[in-house]
């Protein structure tokens, strides 16, 4: 079974549901993407989808986020060896690049064979299961305002009070 080209069925379904609720499917896709990015963080402390709090960008970056690091952690301990590092090492330590930049610079996008960029598992064929965003049980219904699933009146109330974004973005 080759990877499916074109839009997976799930996407179509979400879009249909969103159309009924007058929600731009692109906004829903964006919300999902943002949530998945949050789940990748090393110090995931603020959830934009859960608590609708402002999204402070990942603080993991440390002082080396942009450009040259002002101070390095690797020279904090001596371990008895005094050695002058080569230019290659000093460059690697002082100038941190994020993964997206490194992928760009690696040139793997131009390679014909398998690479990190081609290795991801393809999307599923069947539509997603709908899970109540409040309690985790099956979510039969969808919020008209934000398209999050819920299972019953109780969870709908909790969703409306605490969690509904009222708008998708």
């Amino acid at each position: 079974m080759p990877p499916k080209r074109g839009r997976p069925r799930r996407q179509v379904q979400v879009e249909a549901a969103a159309a009924r609720a007058h929600i731009d499917p692109e906004l829903i896709a964006k919300r999902t993407k943002r949530h998945l990015d949050e789940l990748e963080r090393s110090n995931y402390t603020e959830s934009s989808t859960l608590f609708a709090s402002a999204d402070d960008e990942d603080q993991d970056r440390g002082p080396a986020a942009r450009g040259r690091a002002r101070q390095t952690i690797s020279d904090k301990r001596e371990h008895g060896r005094k050695k002058k590092s080569t230019m290659n090492i000093r460059t690697a330590v002082l100038y941190r690049k994020n993964l997206a930049t490194l992928i760009d610079e690696s040139g793997i996008a131009a390679l014909p064979g398998p690479t990190y960029l081609t290795a991801a598992v393809p999307p599923p064929n069947e539509p997603p299961r709908l899970i109540c965003s409040v309690c985790g049980y099956w979510g039969k219904y969808k919020c008209k305002k934000c398209a999050m699933p819920y299972c019953d009146l109780n969870c709908e109330a909790v969703h409306d009070e605490t969690r509904c974004e009222r708008r998708v973005l």
Binding site: P8, R10, Q11, T32, H35, L36, L39, A120, V121, P122, P123, P124, P128, R129, I131
Partner: peptide, 9 residues
Amino acid sequence: PSDIGLQQL
């Protein structure tokens, strides 16, 4: 993975 919206098998 689609339970959390990740489009992968």
